[in-house]
Structures are given as C-alpha cells and as structure tokens.
Amino acid sequence: MSGQAFVDQLKQKFGDDIVGANLENVDPWVEVTAQGLLAVCQHLHDEPSLAFDYLNSVTAVDYLETDPKKAAKADFEPHMQVVYHLFSMQHKHSLVLKVIVPRWRDDVPGQLPEVPSVAGIWATADWHERECFDLLGVKFTDHPNLRRILCPEDWVGYPLRKDYEMPTEYHGIRGR
C-alpha cells in the first residue's frame, strides 16, 4: 500500500499537504504536513478501498545530535518526527505516515511543537498520544485528555528527547 501510484493519488487529492515519500526504506512512508494530517487520516480511514481502520502505534523520534563533534557532520537539521503506523483489518495492508515538526514551536525552547490529535478517528491514539506527549513533548491539539501517562504528573522534561537530562532530585529521591 505504498507504491508511487498510491502516493500520486494522495498528492492529487491533498496537494501540498503530502510533502513527500520515502519508498526505498524497508517500511516505506508518506510525509504529511501537520495542517493536512486530520483530513488525510479521515480519508484513509473512510475510503472503502483503503479502510485503514486500525491504528497500530503513534510515536515520535527526536532528531538532534547532542555530540558537538558529530553534530557538524550530521546529515539532518534538528527536528521531530511523529510516526503513525496504520493497518487495515479488511484489506490486511499497512501504511506509515510521518509528520515532521520543529523540536520547539517557533524555535523557542519550552514551547511544544503542535500536531492535531487523531484520537477522534482512532481511539488507540488517545493513550498513544498521551505517551508521546509524556516522553517526547509533542502537543496534540484537541486531544480529549492530554496528560502525562507513564511519568508522574509533576515530572519535568521529556525523557525520550535526546537532550534530556535526568533530574538530580525528585521529591527527595536522588536521581543521579
């Protein structure tokens, strides 16, 4: 479910909201803009020939090289990728969607990047997006209940970010 023809079809329907695709990877993926995500997902879910009714996973990957020596040679700019793995129970095919956002909104540290929540389409996204928010600091707008899920509510920072530093102390417990 990820040949060039399929990508072209999506491009025709959603225009610039389909940024690009990587068809060479083991699991090919399609990149979508954050603004276009909801419309694309709704289409993938509702269109009978696609029928992506099952959301396997929502997660994110932080791209930041913290080692200054390696950073000079890194082949990417710092950014955050939100990754969606979809599956269709009816057709038994799968698809990977990616939304690429800056690590901080407007490059102001502390302002979380925003991606629209797909919890209204797949209920799976509710908890998965909470986990992604908790560990990677991606804000899913219009999420019904965007709270931390694995870490305590008063935890500071987003542990799966590459520049995260374990706190030295948490409520009197030594961290490092």
Binding site: D27, N56, T59
Partner: peptide, 20 residues
C-alpha cells in the same frame, strides 16, 4: 541506515517494535 516496524502475535496480542 533506515527504520523498521514489526508486530508479532505474542500471547497477549500484537507486540510491535520500531527500530530507527
């Protein structure tokens, strides 16, 4: 270089791993 996602049928359901 690349990334792979795979789910297997473990006793409790579909256990997925994602490797970048």
């Amino acid at each position: 270089k690349g990334e792979a996602y795979l789910e297997t049928e473990s006793p409790r359901g579909q256990m997925g791993f994602y490797l970048v």
